[in-house]
Design a protein around this nucleic acid. Structure first.
Lengths: 236, 236
DNA sequence: TCAAAAGTGTTATGGTTACACCCATGA
DNA sequence: TCATGGGTGTAACCATAACACTTTTGA
C-alpha cells in the first residue's frame, strides 16, 4: 500500500510592516515599527490576532491571492509584495493540511485606510515590539519577516513608499533608525545616502518650523529602481 | 456562488549544485558548476530533464519530502537543504494545480553516489552552462537558484562540504572562481580568507606534487558555523 | 635544468569612524 | 533671547586593489 500524496489547501499570509514617522501631517504619530494584524472571527483561534491572509482560490496566482486577501481583510492595496517563505509543517493548522506561502511589504500606514471588507476581521496596526501571541504559527512567520526586513534594508534602498514625495534627510535617517533599532551619526548618514545618488535636492525647504528650515529631497525614481536590483551596502 | 478554494498537490523540487574540483583524488574532474538533474520517465515531459523532486506525502514535512525525493531519485542524501522559493502559477503543471516548494544545496559530487531508487529516474550531473530546457517551470527555478547561490556565496562561508577535510588555499580559491565565474588575485584572496579566522593551518603539506608543496588547511568548524549565521562580506 | 604552482609585501586609494560647533527660524 | 533641530569638515584608521619575483619540488 503506497503512502498517500498530500493534498493541501494553500493559504497566503501577509506581513505588512509600517512606519509612520511624526511628520508635519501626522505630528503625533507613533514612531515605531508596526505590523498590520487582524483579529480572527471564526475558529480556530477565534479572537486572537493573526496576520492577514486566507486561502488561495482555484485558478488564482499566489501573489494575487495575497493581494486580494489583504484588501479584503484590511483594505490595504499593495502591488509590491515580496515572497518571504513557505511554512508547511503538517500540523501547523488544526483544520488539516494547510500550507502558507508568506509575503511581506513595508508601507506608510497613513497612505492606506484600514477598511476591512469582511465582518470577520478587525484590522489594526500594532507595534512589533508589542505584538501579542498570534494564531497558528504566525509568530514564527513574523519573526522570519523581521529578520528578513532588517537584512534587506542594509542592501536595498527603502523609503519610497514610506516618506512623502519630498522629505528631509532627518526623516530618512529616523526611518532607518526605527527599522534597524539603532542610531546613526548625522554627518556620516548624510554623506552615505547622498553618495548613492539616490536623492535629488529639490531646492525647496520646509517652512513653518521653529528652527533652521531643512532642505527637501526627493528620490530619483530611476536610480531607486536600479538600486533595488543591484543593491548597495548600508553600514554606518 | 462563492469561488472555490484551491486544493493543490504539493511538490518539492531540489536544485543541488555541485562543484568537483580536479583534486588529487579526482584528477580529471570537470571543473565547472554542475546541477543534479534527472530524466523524467512518465508524462508529462517524458524524456526531458528535470530537477529531482516529487510530491509531498500526507503528514510529511516539506523539507523531509525534499530530502526523501532526492534520495529516491538520485541517491544523494543531504541534511542541509535551504528553502529557495515557492512556485505556484496556476498552470505550471498540466496535470492540475501543483505548487512547488523549491530547495537548494551545494555539494561535492564525489561525496555522493548517484544511485536512483526508482526506475523512472536517470540522475546526472550536468554543467549549469549546458543545461537543456527543463520540464515544467524548472528553468525558472534553476535560474532563481543560481542567482541566490551567487548572492549567498558573498555573504556566507562555503567549502565545508565541497572540499576534502584538508585542502590548499588554491583549491579554495578555485572553488570561488568556479561558482562566481570570476578570477581573484592570489595574494588578496589569501589575505582575505585568512583574516576571517575560518581556516586553520594543519602544519602539513601536500606531497607528491611536481612543485613546491602547498600547506594544507582545515575549516574551524565552530567559526564556520558562526559565520554562516552572522555572515561576512566577500568582495575581492 | 625545466616546468609548475606556492608563497610573499608594498603602495595608493578610498571608505569608515568619531567627533563639535555655528546657523536659521518661530515663539 | 532662547530652544530647536539643520547643517557642515577633518583626521586617524582600515580595507581594498594592483602589482612581480623567489622558492620548492618532481620529472
Amino acid at each position: 500500500m503506497a503512502p498517500e500524496r498530500a493534498t493541501a489547501q494553500v493559504a497566503v499570509d501577509c506581513v505588512v510592516f509600517g512606519v509612520q514617522l511624526a511628520l508635519p501631517d501626522h505630528p503625533d504619530a507613533d514612531d515605531r515599527l508596526m505590523v498590520l494584524l487582524v483579529e480572527r472571527g471564526p475558529a480556530p483561534f477565534a479572537g486572537r490576532m493573526a496576520l492577514p491572509g486566507g486561502f488561495v482560490l482555484a485558478g488564482e496566482g499566489l501573489k494575487a491571492a495575497a493581494e486580494r486577501e489583504l484588501v479584503e481583510e484590511t483594505g490595504v492595496k499593495l502591488t509590491y509584495l515580496e515572497q518571504l517563505y513557505t511554512f508547511g509543517a503538517p500540523a501547523r493548522d488544526p483544520r488539516g493540511r494547510v500550507l502558507s506561502v508568506a509575503w511581506m511589504a513595508l508601507v506608510r500606514p497613513s497612505a492606506h485606510q484600514l477598511a476591512p471588507d469582511t465582518d470577520a476581521a478587525d484590522a489594526r496596526w500594532v507595534p512589533v515590539a508589542e505584538a501579542p501571541p498570534l494564531a497558528f504559527d504566525h509568530d514564527t512567520i513574523l519573526a522570519t519577516a523581521l529578520e528578513r526586513l532588517r537584512g534587506k534594508v542594509r542592501w536595498q534602498p527603502i523609503g519610497f513608499d514610506l516618506l512623502p514625495p519630498r522629505f528631509t534627510l532627518t526623516w530618512l535617517q529616523r526611518l532607518y533608525e526605527v527599522i534597524l533599532e539603532q542610531t546613526f551619526d548625522k554627518r556620516n548618514f548624510r554623506r552615505k545616502v547622498l553618495k548613492t545618488g539616490l536623492l535629488v535636492d529639490t531646492g525647496d525647504r520646509l517652512t513653518g518650523v521653529p528652527h533652521k528650515p531643512p532642505a527637501l529631497y526627493a528620490f530619483d525614481r530611476d536610480r531607486y529602481e536600479r538600486l533595488q536590483t543591484s543593491g548597495f551596502s548600508f553600514e554606518l
